[in-house]
Structure formats: structure tokens, C-alpha cells
Simulated scan of single mutants.
Amino acid sequence: MAPPQLLVFDVFGTVVDWHGSIAAEMARLYPQVDSNAFALAWRAGYKPTMARVMSGELGWTRIDDLHRMILDDILPGFGLSNMPENERRSLNRVWHRLHPWPDVVAGLARLKRQHLISTLSNGNIGLLTHMAKHAGLPWDCVLSAEVFRAYKPDARVYLGAADLFDLQPGQVMLVAAHQDDLAAARASGLQTAYIERPFEFGAQQPKDVSPHPDNTLHARDFGHLADQLDAHRLA
């Protein structure tokens, strides 16, 4: 393995705990609501709504705006159809306030010593920047699919990231907790590292985090990824 020069990171689920963060906020603000079900319902609307943009049914739409569309759709099902506009706007910004997994901040600091590190998320730039400020994420660059007017898994996102840094695809590694994202990155020539996040969907729905043989690396967390990259660099 040639050591990658640039590490690009999926964010939702890989870097930050979207489920735990949203469920905690809902439990605090609206204790009458099943906060676990609410978090899952909000996230479940993500891919179908994004597909409406990719199909051309909707014009290009920022993830902030897609999140708001989904929020408005699911509120009645949780008895919150009368939520005022100011509360809806504030709740939609919870995606800017997601908390990182425990290993993330220290792990990114280690990874940053030897590599450029950047987001490569479908989240819009404003969202990702606010999140980094809130969570103390030490990115070298905040890069979004918004730059390419295409959502992952479109190849333009992965190849565009390499091109922005004047690198060949094989000099870039995508770090993600989602095998479909990693598969699309590999198809574009990137190296890939899978991160285990077994409780991305909450403790009640642990997910399979088995290794996939096509990934370049498989790591328990960001610290373990740094260990492996350091070993390859020094070999």
C-alpha cells in the first residue's frame, strides 16, 4: 500500500453520532416523543429525499434544506404538527450540533500529523463548518459534495476531491463507516478505510461491522486507523 497523502472522511455516522445526538436533544425538548424512533425516522428520509434531487425531480438542494423537508414530513406522525416555525428552524440546526464519537478528536489530531485531513460529506459547507466549530474537529479543509453539485456516491465527488488537491485518486483514502460509500470510492480509484461504528443506529439496532476484503484498511476507531497508517508509513 502506498501511503495516502489525503484522508477524506464521511461525516454522518463515521465522525459524529447523529442518532445519539438527535435522540438526546429530542428527549430533552420533547420528552413525550419516542426520541429513538424520531432520530431513525429523520435519518430514514435522507436517501429517498436526496434521490429526488439526483433524479432531477428537485433542483440542487442543500442538505440543510433536505433535512428541513424531511422534518416537516415526519412531525405530524409524532404529534408535533403544531410546532412553531422558530422551533422547527432551531431543531433543524441540531445537525450542526452533532457530537463526535469518543475516539474522533484525538484520532483526527494524530492523523493530521502525517496526512492532510478533510471532510468529504454530502452535508453542506455551512453545516460542516458549524459542526467542526461545535465539536472541535481539527480539519485541514471542510469539503462538501456541494462543491461538485453532486451527492455521493457520484464519482464526481470522489474524483473532484482528488483533483482539488492535485492528487491521483490512489493517493486519496476515503474513511467511512458505510460500505456503499467505500465501494463507490474504490470504483473511482481511491483507497478505502472502514471504521466500525456498530451503534450508529442506536444500541437497540447494532449493525454488522464485519471486514470487507476489498477495503484497504479496517479499523476499530480512528486511533486504530492511525496505528495502521503509521505502521505502513514506517515499513
Rank of each mutant, 00 (worst) to 15 (best):
H218P: 05
G170K: 10
R52G: 06
L71K: 05
R88W: 02
L75H: 09
P3G: 02
K152D: 04
D64E: 14
H67I: 12
T14H: 03
H96S: 13
P31N: 08
A106D: 15
L225C: 02
N122Q: 10
K133T: 13
A132G: 15
E87S: 07
A23F: 11
H19F: 15
E87K: 09
D64W: 11
L80T: 05
L127A: 07
S144W: 10
Q191P: 02
D73F: 07
Y30S: 08
V94A: 03
A37N: 12
P169M: 04
T49N: 08
A23H: 11
G160L: 07
G77N: 14
A193V: 08
R220C: 00
S35I: 11
I125V: 13
V209A: 02
L108T: 01
L229T: 00
L120Y: 01
H232I: 15
S21T: 14
K207E: 12
M69F: 13
A235H: 13
R186C: 04
H99N: 06
R68W: 04
V11R: 04
D154T: 10
L182I: 00
H96L: 02
A203S: 14
D17F: 11
G59T: 09
G45R: 08
D73H: 13
P76V: 03
A185D: 06
P169S: 05
T119C: 06
L80A: 05
G20P: 08
A37I: 12
P4H: 11
Y158V: 04
G202W: 11
N92D: 14
A150T: 06
D103L: 11
P100V: 12
V8W: 03
A226V: 06
A235M: 13
M83H: 03
K207I: 14
M83A: 03
L127W: 10
P84E: 08
S118N: 12
S121K: 05
T119W: 05
F199A: 06
P84V: 09
L91F: 15
N122H: 10
V33R: 09
R88P: 03
A145E: 07
L234G: 03
L182H: 01
G79E: 02
M69K: 12
H134Y: 13
V142A: 07
W95D: 05
I74V: 15
D166Q: 12
Q228C: 05
A226F: 05
W101G: 02
W60C: 04
A27E: 14
M26L: 14
R89I: 13
V209I: 13
V105A: 09
T61G: 08
R88V: 08
A176L: 03
H212G: 01
